[in-house]
């Protein structure tokens, strides 16, 4: 599904990722943990094609294609989805408009006709229900005036409608209350399938109680310094990151 090899990325000539290697197979859930400023969001942005990042070395292969060659919208249409750590507010553009525009862009890319208006509403409303959101959110401007937790939930709603193949969740759990965390986690779990992979960035073991990962990685100083099973997250919760310092070398 996704193969990142020796990835080096700089922002304004400042190296942020320094030789990151990671492989994700179809159906797998990988969690990435790591200290603030380690480069986790940078990785998520580079994977989704945000401007301003320079790849100085290494490669990213997604479903056999050179991901870094693709425009952001093509990556999205090919199934890469990023749930942002800080989703933007877009006044004047309703949620339902965005969902429809996005879904139709995907369908067109895959040679499918535009979604039927009634079918679309049925799909969207079922996903709204899955995430226990109020239907009124559909008609509000994207994220405008949403609470922190509502924004995160809205990101997962988009994922549920768009059904990506690689779903990157950047701290989707941060800012969610206890009940919302459970609901969002259930939403994510319902999306799990043998064809769909997840890359979950989180600071908290708690999320992993709900969504059990296949692998846990520690990203520090721009590379993966340790990988392990779900038990690694428990160990990190207990010991923090300092014992791993210097392991990168």
């Amino acid at each position: 599904m996704l193969s990142i090899k020796n990835l080096h990325v700089s922002i304004n000539d400042k190296p942020i990722l320094k030789g990151l290697t990671l492989d994700i197979n179809p159906g797998e859930v990988h969690a990435i943990m790591g200290p603030n400023g380690a480069g986790k969001s940078t990785l998520s942005h580079v994977l989704s094609g945000k401007a301003g990042y320079t790849v100085t070395e290494g490669s990213v292969t997604y479903q056999g294609k050179d991901l870094l060659e693709l425009a952001p919208e093509i990556r999205a249409r090919e199934g890469v989805f990023l749930a942002f750590q800080y989703p933007v507010e877009i006044p004047g553009v309703s949620n339902i408009y965005l969902l429809k525009a996005a879904l139709n862009a995907m369908r067109k890319h895959h040679g499918q006709p535009e979604v039927d208006a009634m079918d679309f509403l049925t799909i969207v409303k079922s996903k709204v229900k899955l995430l226990q959101m109020d239907e009124k959110f559909l008609y509000r401007a994207v994220n405008e005036g949403f609470s922190g937790g509502e924004k995160k939930r809205n990101e997962i709603l988009q994922a549920a409608v768009l059904e990506p193949k690689l779903c990157i969740l950047d701290e989707t759990d941060s800012g969610l209350d206890i009940d919302a965390l459970r609901i969002v986690a259930e939403g994510v779990n319902s999306l799990r399938s043998p064809e769909r992979s997840f890359l979950m960035i989180t600071h908290y073991q708690r999320l992993l109680d709900y969504i059990e990962p296949d692998m846990v990685h520690v990203l520090a100083e721009g590379r993966i310094v340790k990988s392990g099973g779900p038990e690694l997250a428990l160990e990190l919760e207990e010991k923090g990151y300092s014992w791993l310092e210097g392991k990168a070398a």
């Binding site: 401007a51 919208e73 990556r75 999205a76 933007v88 525009a101 996005a102 862009a105 768009l162």
Partner: peptide
């Protein structure tokens, strides 16, 4: 970029 990341 947000809209692009959704396929637009």
């Amino acid at each position: 970029f947000y809209l692009q990341s959704r396929g637009v």
